[in-house]
Design a protein around this nucleic acid. Structure first.
Lengths: 158, 158
DNA sequence: GAGAATGATTACAAACGCGAACGGTTCTCC
DNA sequence: GGAGAACCGTTCGCGTTTGTAATCATTCTC
């Protein structure tokens, strides 16, 4: 057997492991929230609106790193279901401030609860002390890499 | 400020962090290998063929978790560039055994080298001992979650 | 008040992936 | 030995998704 085959059988780097596990976790989460009839992208938008309500769509697009035109459909899908409101700013009527309705806030809480179950399912093989160690390592990498906290970078191409 | 807003500002779960970092790592890796004119999917296929040459496309599709029809285009794109060969099995002419050409093997090694650089870039904020601790934690999660070693689960929908 | 600039939206086109149907080959079993 | 089932690879059509560019409304500049 040639040397190249042996080397390609080597265990992949940690970054690959990270990417693989991340995709797995994302897919599993998508399955869970599908029961609530929301996509991962919608979930992220709900989260962002809940965290910083009243933002314009432009500002939200920049925060999430997505083209504004993409937000339109996303907001539409949530507004049609009465989860999100576009409030026209009286002083500048170009702006559409994004707010959660009561239903939207309730759904956001249910999603958060699903997220906790999801967390437990993914990390079930780790002790509590190991979980916090993992969390701190991941948080340090995320900060070093310049990731916006609470925002999934996949909005750039998802 | 209502309680719901405070809670949604809480730091996200580790699984979310994992998904976000995984997407980030994957995006950065895609940028790096774009210089070699290959996509992440092509890279994964090259890796798989290098690891277990001679497999039929059916077997490869099952290993990667992708519909066979998707492999066709993927193999085509690599075969057109002389990186991969379809060898017809004389005893069973339905089968197309997948092999790397010399060029394909050379490219696979360059990709592996890029992967090591990528690894260093992602983990640069961690000491060596921390890297191995992270690696072992991730490996345990991956095994518990039933991930096939060396295979990116995103092939299921990528 | 005219024209540039800004926010949201729409229109259009391109890329991608899956499922089902299709030809070619081999296997089963009478 | 031959008919039909099973299997492999491929192609085709459909729906989904995303980004770019043009469009409409509103506000700012001067």
């Amino acid at each position: 057997m040639p040397a190249s085959a042996r080397r390609l059988d080597d265990p992949p780097g940690s970054a690959f492991l990270l990417a693989a596990l991340g995709a797995h976790a994302a897919a599993r989460f998508a399955e869970r929230i599908a029961a609530l009839d929301v996509t991962p992208a919608q979930t992220g938008l709900l989260r962002a609106i809940a965290a910083t309500p009243g933002q314009s769509q432009q500002a939200m697009a920049q925060l999430l790193g997505t083209p504004p035109s993409r937000l339109v459909g996303l907001v539409d899908s949530l507004a049609d279901r009465g989860l999100v409101e576009r409030r026209r700013n009286p002083t500048d009527r170009r702006l559409h401030a994004l707010h959660l309705t009561a239903e939207g806030a309730a759904l956001a809480e249910r999603i958060e609860s699903v997220g906790r179950e999801h967390d437990d399912a993914i990390l079930r093989s780790l002790e509590h002390s190991e979980r916090s160690r993992l969390r701190s390592l991941l948080a340090r990498i995320a900060e070093d890499q310049g990731l916006t906290p609470g925002v999934h970078p996949g909005y750039r191409r998802m």
